[in-house]
Design a protein around this nucleic acid. Structure first.
Lengths: 197, 197
DNA sequence: GTACTACTATGACAGCGGTCATAATCGCGG
DNA sequence: CCGCGATTATGACCGCTGTCATAGTAGTAC
């Protein structure tokens, strides 16, 4: 069960949560309602666009959540550096993976795999979510001294590697791929700062 | 329609192909049969384990295919280097993405997203597929002069980044994330060779 | 020809999914 | 109390899915 402001928000949140587990098709509307502790009738009311709309909003929520976390990580870093930021981002996933291995997927990735080829609006929502996530990362990199021209590519690289490593980690039920990503990519990211000075 | 040796092989191949499009749940058994041009009755005969078995074999096939491609890439490289290998691996995806944007996902990724949390055997099949894919990559790296201790981590990194970038590229309907991955990761990979000399 | 195995054909079934139609209730201004 | 929009309740519908039961055909060994 999920607490939150209104039934609408809870349903979006629950949808995102369930997407992470088993993807879009495996997530039923009735299941979302139950998970959110929301009235079933509210589905029709708040999401006249049906499942497509609900999924899209869940994806959007996911992108916003990830973006917001970046800011939080930055605030908590003892001494900021691209590698340290990346490590913090990855760490969240290893932690979740340790406590709930079966439920720790990325809702945006799920939407891409299940719907990118068939539902345009969902594909766009996913692209927007990734972009929204990358923006604060790129900005943080420039603030740390990474040359402006490389900030955006490196931000994309960080998210790419994170997503892929997460996929492998889920398959292996082992955070190995994630920790490897940090170990190998961290130095590269930090080196980009030096080039900017 | 698909040509191949026996109906059995064709069905596995078709399953993998359809998995790439819309994931596991969106891929129906009847659809696989039709795509393979195979007799429906053969499903029961060759896959008594049902959809689970078919999906697992499709995932295994995907892993084998990826592994085999690595060998082919190596043979075709004018002057081998880790970065060049990575570029070749990525290039295959950008090409496919250009010709069939909606059908160019990774079947293994699809299996992870849709089934890793619910079907153990499929999760294991996915992990095995990734491992099978990484093995020839790691071996190629050592052959190129990468220190043995870093070969495997770097192979994992390459596949992680590739998978993640592919996800983003599909969402954006644009190979940007993939080309970025090559541009940013290539130098890092090549630098690992220098450290080995 | 007979028997036996490999393979194929087909129809049914039970379940679940998203969606819709319809109606009830709630909260509040007048 | 009345009206009215916002919300919720519920049941039905139809399509699809994986699976199974049953029966048919093909090919081969004897």
């Amino acid at each position: 069960m999920v607490s939150g402001r209104g039934p609408r928000e809870r349903m979006v949140f629950s949808a995102a949560q369930l997407l992470r587990r088993g993807g879009v098709a495996a997530t039923g509307m009735r299941e979302v309602v139950a998970h959110a502790g929301a009235p079933r009738g509210s589905l029709q009311h708040y999401f006249p666009g049906g499942k497509e709309q609900l999924v899209n909003e869940a994806v959007e929520w996911g992108g916003g959540y990830a973006a917001e976390r970046v800011g939080r990580f930055l605030a908590e870093l003892p001494e900021p550096s691209p590698g340290a930021l990346f490590a913090a981002m990855v760490r969240q996933w290893t932690d979740e993976l340790a406590s709930a291995p079966d439920a720790t997927g990325c809702p945006v990735a799920a939407a891409v795999v299940d719907r990118a080829g068939s539902v345009e609006s969902t594909r766009e929502a996913a692209a927007a979510a990734f972009a929204r996530w990358a923006r604060p990362v790129a900005r943080a990199l420039t603030d740390m001294g990474v040359p402006a021209a490389r900030a955006e590519p490196l931000a994309t690289l960080m998210i790419s590697t994170l997503e892929g490593a997460l996929l492998i980690a889920r398959a292996e039920r082992d955070p190995r791929a994630l920790t490897t990503a940090v170990a190998e990519l961290g130095p590269l990211l930090d080196a980009a700062v030096a080039e900017g000075t």
